Simulated assay, not measured.
Amino acid sequence: MLKKTACALAVLPAIYVGAAQASAVDPAIVAANRALSFSLGALNQNYRELDSGGSVLDKENGAIPRIGVEYSLMGLQTPLRFYMSADYAGGDTSYKGALQNGTPYDTSTGNKIVDLNVGLGYAFGFGRFAVIPGVEYGYSNWQRDAGKGDPVHGVKETYTHGHLAVTVSGQFAITSKAVLSLDAAYGKTVSPQMKIDELGGTSVTSPTFELGSKPWSRVGLGFDYAAKKNVHIGARLAYTQFKYGASAVYAGVYEPDSKTRHTTFDFVVSYNF
């Protein structure tokens, strides 16, 4: 019994040292996560509405300009990581579908897309590498102007949803100034809704179409370089995918199942502290 107790006590310091090493995050990674950053890039919209059999009813494609701002903070003593971001993308994409009577209808769609995110995580350091698991809540608002400028067939709609996801970020300090990151998130949409704002240029009072909650996911790749002590530059590439379920029928009208895929690429400049 005494031998077993002595062995256990001998192991405790090693466990403590291992835990301490796992919580020591590389200074380059800490610096990359303490910033007020501004981004400029593009969002590629890939949207599909589907019938009950999975066939495409209509689709939209195209790249539109995007700007964003993010504030992130990682503790110097305790490696908690907090971030919040806001992004806006706006412009026209191509629309290919059909009118209610089945007549093919090819036109353009005006888009205004706002994405807001807030997240919290904890960093575990392993030499020049860190793993940061966490959680994220987000909100998205898409103002869709299908048939933009068409006084007869144009439709303006607003789609909104939140998302709640678990996240993980793997970050590697390539050098004392350069950090490479690979991020992933998975969750579900929260309270997805759609409202019709205008039909043929005329404002309407629309019921709220409640859309079914579906999976939401994102993967991303980022690079951060400390050009100066407090000025960093970098780039980010991300792919986000989510679905909406079909709504109930209101006065003979319903919103079908849909699938959205966003690919974003941004150049980033930040003030780091």
Rank of each mutant, 00 (worst) to 15 (best):
R236L: 09
V204R: 07
N61F: 09
D115Q: 09
E255I: 10
A19L: 15
Q21W: 11
F273L: 04
G18D: 08
F82W: 12
L57V: 01
S94W: 05
K259R: 14
T158F: 06
A226T: 10
Y95E: 01
M194P: 01
T175R: 06
G68R: 05
G162Q: 10
A248I: 13
I67D: 01
T109Y: 00
D224A: 11
K156S: 07
R66H: 04
K177E: 09
D115A: 03
G53F: 09
L73A: 12
L76E: 15
S176I: 09
Y105L: 02
G75R: 00
L36G: 08
A20W: 08
P256S: 14
V131D: 00
P256A: 13
W142N: 07
K148T: 03
A146T: 15
L99E: 00
A178C: 05
Q77D: 14
K229D: 15
E198V: 06
T160W: 06
T240Q: 04
A173V: 08
G119Q: 06
K243F: 08
W216M: 01
A238N: 05
P65V: 05
A6S: 14
T93Q: 06
F223V: 15
L120E: 09
H262P: 14
V231Q: 09
P256R: 12
L182D: 05
G212Y: 04
M74A: 07
V179D: 00
Y225A: 14
Y71E: 03
V231C: 10
G138K: 01
G97A: 00
Q45G: 10
L57P: 03
T240N: 04
Q21R: 13
L40E: 05
G62S: 11
K243T: 10
T78N: 15
F38A: 00
E60C: 06
